[in-house]
């Protein structure tokens, strides 16, 4: 991983602004379960990749995509295919 790529890696906590526009309860402490490996942890502990298309949240254990977020002129997309549940 070069420096430029490393710069785009953040923590799930960094998705708080974007997600807090959608969710009313505190989102970074909500428990989220990875579909692939069943690891359950706070959303804020996921690894965040800030890519040009949007934001990708990956599992810290198996690296699978848990959540994808995109803001487009036609709306906000929250893809949670990789998450079994969110618990507040």
């Amino acid at each position: 991983m070069n420096d430029k790529d490393a710069d785009r890696v953040l923590d799930g906590n960094a998705a708080a602004s974007l997600l807090q526009e959608i969710f009313v309860p505190e989102i970074t402490t909500a428990q989220i379960q990875c579909v692939a490996c069943s690891l359950t942890g706070a959303l804020g502990s996921l690894r965040l990749y800030a890519v040009p298309m949007g934001t990708v949240l990956r599992c810290t254990q198996c690296d699978c995509v848990v959540m994808r977020l995109a803001q487009t002129p036609r709306g906000r997309w929250v893809d949670m295919t990789g998450a079994r549940y969110l618990k507040f």
Partner: peptide, 12 residues
């Protein structure tokens, strides 16, 4: 618990 800095010194 970790908080990484983004490329702009803040978070995206």
């Amino acid at each position: 618990k970790t908080e990484r800095f983004g490329p702009t010194g803040g978070q995206p």
